[in-house]
């Protein structure tokens, strides 16, 4: 692989790309993390490029029917379901206030 190709790939993950994906994934990053991830993602995605060489494979999965009757049964109580929530109100989960 030529140096030029390396440079093109290196340019293919920018700090803006990382910020965009982080926004899609709802994960804030500080600027240090953005730059570090951008550099690491170049290496990792370049390594993933080898998947291009994979041939198409015909698969015949042996599928089993795992459906069952939809019968009502006991689940968590409301109290149990709410027991790990930071904030609750009147038996409901309470999310951030929409400003």
């Amino acid at each position: 692989m030529s140096d030029t190709a390396d440079e093109e790939r290196a340019a293919s993950v920018t700090a803006d790309d990382v910020r965009h994906v982080a926004e899609l994934a709802r994960v804030d990053l500080d600027e240090g993390e953005v730059d570090e991830f951008a550099a690491q993602f170049v290496d990792i995605l370049e390594y993933f490029e080898a998947l291009d060489e994979v041939p198409e494979v015909d698969t015949e999965d042996d599928l089993a029917n795992v459906m069952r009757p939809d019968e009502v049964r006991d689940g968590l109580s409301q109290e149990e379901a709410l027991s790990n929530a930071t904030e609750t109100e009147d038996g409901y989960f309470k999310g951030p206030r929409v400003s």
Partner: peptide, 28 residues
């Protein structure tokens, strides 16, 4: 404030670097 911003800040605090890396690469 905005739900998405609030969640993104909570997730920044709660997750370590390797988990963030994999969530981001998986999203990508």
């Amino acid at each position: 404030g905005n739900w998405n911003d609030a969640f993104a800040r909570a997730r920044e605090e709660g997750f370590g670097p390797e988990v963030k890396r994999r969530i981001l690469l998986g999203t990508y």
